[in-house]
Design a protein around this nucleic acid. Structure first.
Lengths: 189, 189, 189, 189
DNA sequence: CATGAATGAGGGTTCATTCAT
DNA sequence: CATGAATGAACCCTCATTCAT
């Protein structure tokens, strides 16, 4: 039984495929995490990306590495989005709602592995985003003085989780209710 | 195929072990769910209880049966606890905090499997508890009219999840912060 | 956790239940074997009979004992049925067809475990039945001289198996075809 | 959970092992099915082939896939074998006898799962083989007009099953007897 | 450096058999 | 002597990880 070449292997695109594979993996992971959560089979990401298992492990030796790579982009987005002076905490919550499922995976990551040195910077950047918003909203008198950045971060986490947990059909209702709840909590008194 | 008789089986304690096994399984499940969440290996419960796999399946033919058995006790507690006229929503939150980890698994169960006929009654009982409290607090003027029972249930769920997610060492701080947040949200305006 | 008596055990009918249990087990086994074949879960028989597992094992220490007990009655039937001088091999085949599923389990038993001392007598009795028929049919000139009892026994086994294997809806057609085939084989030339 | 690294895993022979593993699995399955029938533990095939469970599932995602792979070869054989104009139904029966045990599993497969889209073609090919032979034998006057292809297929199935059921030592005698029986059934009258 | 097959441990579930009451 | 719970081995399947090519 010689190792016959019956099944020609997929074209090995060689080293040049490196960067594009990496990007494909991140994109695939974003989709997979959105659909199945952070605990989706790791190999599902490779399959979705159309990339070998080995390449997945080469680029991202473990789950966390991949998750970090995915969410670095999310934080970048958020930073940019909130950099305009007109953004409010409500806008932040909007953003979370809009990205419901990915948001949850993100929160999962930064809460579960906060002490992982690869994850910490991500958390810090997120915290900066929130701190800036809070400072601005305090100054504008839109946010009660009893609320600080940590409160808002917690609210964001709760919101994301609650949305992820909900039946997709129920999400709009859940979002509305949760937003109102935090709105009440945040109002100046 | 019969089990090979080489390893003497654990002493068969006979039918008398039935009720105590059942109790041991529930207790073990409470611990395991607390530590690893509702998706912990089912067999881990049997192992922790010191009971064979088969006995676990005899008593609880599937995950949900076991979870329901665990949380029936919790709801009973809550009902009794809140039956006194002097109980407040704050007390309810206290209770959730006190049971942090188990609470989450409970919330997981009643939100994920709400339509399971075995789970629905549990959810309904929990809802009754909350409705009674809300009515009483509305009447006493301690609760804003913008808040209804569904808001409180959502808050309880969020609180429980947030606590479960937190590092055990951080839980007191998390609890304090979350309680304050919901306190603000619930206050009459 | 004392062994509370919450679940009152089924009435223990005591020694008097012995004979009736035995009969119930045999009847249950006949049904179960008919529905699921000889390899049905052994415990299914006890459950169907409404009898404890232990009683099943007491009466029938293994599968074969039970199967033998079941089919002793079948052979008795056959013996009686074929004792009339007017019975033909066709009648025998009819009988097999009529009992399709049970027949198969019977054939399974006497072919698979023929050397088991408990099974052998059963086989011998069946063989006697066939031998008598063959002798009679030879004498009457209805059966080719190239056919002996072993041929007929083999045909019966094949017929039963073929029927058991067939979709229940197809059984009449299968029976017709197989009967015709053996009819042709048995005819005097 | 990662496999504990305490036991050094069997050498990973790499992708080159793929084709040979596949062949080894088919060969092992042929043996196992021969010895224990189609319902042998699936994992026994992997063990016999000296291959990991996972590889078995990669190559053959379920029992049927494997069985089909095994028997495709058998049907190919038969087609080739019977393609010569000089082959008779007796030759076909010979072939079945020669492959006794595997034949049974084959019959099991094509009778039990005839509606499975993977199995149906196999059955159709087998049917073609028989039809061609029957036509030829009819024309040659060697086969009674009362016999059609379905009769022969049924006879083949019965023969295979009977052989598989028999003690290996008895098989020659069983084969002789059964062949004679069908010979008589098939003869022109 | 990419590929993708191989590997085997782990968790799920069923069922034969034993044995205290 | 009946009862029925307890036990654990076996088989199923999935998936994380390694490694030859």
């Amino acid at each position: 039984m010689p190792p016959s070449a019956e099944v020609p292997p997929r074209a090995n695109r060689g080293p040049a495929a490196g960067p594009s594979n990496r990007a494909a993996l991140i994109a695939a992971a974003r989709e997979v995490y959105g659909e199945e959560g952070l605990s989706a089979p790791f190999s599902a990401v490779a399959k979705r990306a159309g990339v070998g298992q080995g390449s997945l492990y080469r680029h991202f030796p473990d789950r966390t590495s991949l998750a970090v790579a995915v969410f670095v982009e999310n934080v970048g987005d958020l930073e940019e989005y909130t950099s305009s002076d007109s953004r409010t905490i409500d806008d932040l919550l909007d953003r979370v709602v809009a990205q419901a499922v990915v948001s949850t995976a993100f929160i999962e990551l930064i809460t579960a592995d906060l002490h992982d040195p690869r994850v910490a910077p991500l958390g810090a950047r997120f915290q900066s985003v929130v701190e800036r918003l809070v400072a601005r909203e305090h100054a504008a008198g839109h946010l009660g003085r009893h609320i600080d950045a940590a409160d808002v971060m917690m609210a964001v986490g709760m919101l994301a989780t609650e949305l992820a947990r909900a039946d997709p059909d129920d999400r709009p209702a859940v979002a509305t209710r949760a937003r109102a709840l935090f709105h009440a909590a945040f109002a100046p008194r």
